[in-house]
Computed example of a mutant assay.
Amino acid sequence: MLPDVYHTIALTKIRRIRKFNGESNLAVKVGQKVNATEKIADIFPETKYQTINVKKLLNFNNSQDARRAIEIESGSKIKAGEIIAQTSGIFAKTIKAQQDSEVLLINGSMVLLKQLQSPRSLIAGFESYVSEIMPDYGVILETNGVLVQCAWGNQKSDSGLLIHLEQEADIEITAKMIDVSHRGMVIMGNHCQHSSVFKAAKDFNVRGLIFSSMNPDLIAPALDMEIPIVVVDSFTPVSMNMRAYDLLKSNAKREVSLSAIYDPNHNEKAEIIIPLPAEAMPPQESYQFSEGLIVRVNEGLFQGKAGIIKRIVNNSVTLFNGVRAICAIIQFSDDEQASIPLANLDALE
Rank of each mutant, 00 (worst) to 15 (best):
V197Y: 03
S181P: 02
K114L: 11
H164W: 11
K93W: 01
I171L: 12
Q193F: 12
V139L: 02
G184S: 09
I187T: 08
L141V: 01
H182V: 00
Q115Y: 10
P119M: 03
L147D: 03
H182F: 06
G108E: 06
E127H: 12
M134I: 13
K114Q: 15
M188P: 01
A92F: 11
H191F: 10
F126I: 06
L122M: 08
R183C: 09
G189F: 02
S121G: 10
F126Y: 13
H194N: 15
I95P: 02
L165P: 01
Q193K: 15
G153Y: 01
Q115W: 08
R183I: 02
L165E: 00
M185F: 02
E127R: 10
L122N: 04
G184C: 09
I171S: 08
Q117T: 13
C192I: 15
V103F: 08
F198R: 04
E102H: 08
G108D: 10
E132S: 12
K156N: 09
A200T: 05
Q117W: 05
D170T: 12
E132Y: 11
P135S: 10
L162V: 04
I178S: 02
M110T: 09
L161P: 00
D170I: 10
L112A: 10
V186E: 02
S181K: 11
V180S: 06
S196N: 14
H191N: 10
V148G: 05
G153V: 00
Q149E: 15
